[in-house]
Design a protein around this nucleic acid. Structure first.
Lengths: 144, 144
DNA sequence: AATCATCTTTGTAACAATTCTCATTTGACA
DNA sequence: TGTCAAATGAGAATTGTTACAAAGATGATT
């Protein structure tokens, strides 16, 4: 935990951003809820527990900054809100999601799985892939 | 065109919905812009040209209905708006997208490409896939 | 230590997309 | 033709997000 924060701090510094207390509190919340897919409002509520003076705008700005640095990814599952998801450290690509249409659960797939497909796409469409988003909708193992 | 509308009409009737003039005008706009990825506002503007009395809420309601019937898919490329994309008639799965981070163009991939990946996912995660969303972000052939 | 420029934060206002409300209209069918 | 549920239109309300202005913190330079 502390080490990951330390590394994120370095990453910020390398682009001459600072890890202010508010930003650190926000990052801690994200690390503590690594498996969830929190909306900005969710993050705000959770940060407020430990750092009640924080403002909503600061949370939005921090999430935006972390997205820019590719520490988190901003995703959208079709409900009206953006959600923020920590990247695996060092992951080249963003992981995939399984969204259950019964219970709404969101599970993650860390494996890439798309290498072959991406080769085909890069070739056939002459498109240089920088990132991807892959979500499956269906019935999760718990709902069967 | 007329035949496709006729088939959509049947589909609506089969669920006891009606193809009202407003709905038909909306469907026509979607068919005429099959290659685009129109937002609700875009659709509204275009329908208004032919049917000026239509209200924005009706367009939203119609798009919602068509989404439910899987005539269109509601997609989200990360800008703040939902876009609506006609399904290929009879397509089992939703097609994929290439979003250019230079020029913003959105191209479509009609090929499935995910058969193998889906087999793996269904097996390994015991997840029954009903639909998918796949978007690649990168540099399109025009921007190189 | 005082000064200065630069970030950063906060609270709130503004904004834009979408949904809701409700009075009115429509259209299928008895 | 009268009935009634479904559909519509206009605008208000709601919601997620961003912009703004003022105040505060930081850190380098003198």
């Amino acid at each position: 935990m502390e080490q990951r924060i330390e590394r994120i701090k370095k990453q910020l510094h390398s682009q001459s951003y600072k890890l202010t207390p508010q930003r650190e509190a926000t990052v801690r919340v994200l690390l503590e809820h690594e498996d969830d897919h929190l909306s900005a409002e969710d993050v705000y509520m959770l940060v407020k527990e430990k750092y009640p003076e924080i403002g909503l705008a600061t949370v939005y700005r921090t999430l935006e900054l972390l997205t820019e640095l590719k520490v988190v990814d901003k995703i959208n599952f079709g409900d009206g809100v953006s959600r923020y998801d920590l990247r695996q450290e060092g992951a080249a690509h963003f992981h995939h999601h399984l969204v259950c249409i019964e219970c709404g659960a969101v599970d993650e797939i860390q494996e890439d799985l798309l290498e072959d497909v991406e080769k085909v796409v890069e070739h056939r469409w002459n498109f240089t892939i920088k990132d991807h988003r892959l979500t499956f909708h269906g019935i999760c193992h718990r709902c069967k």
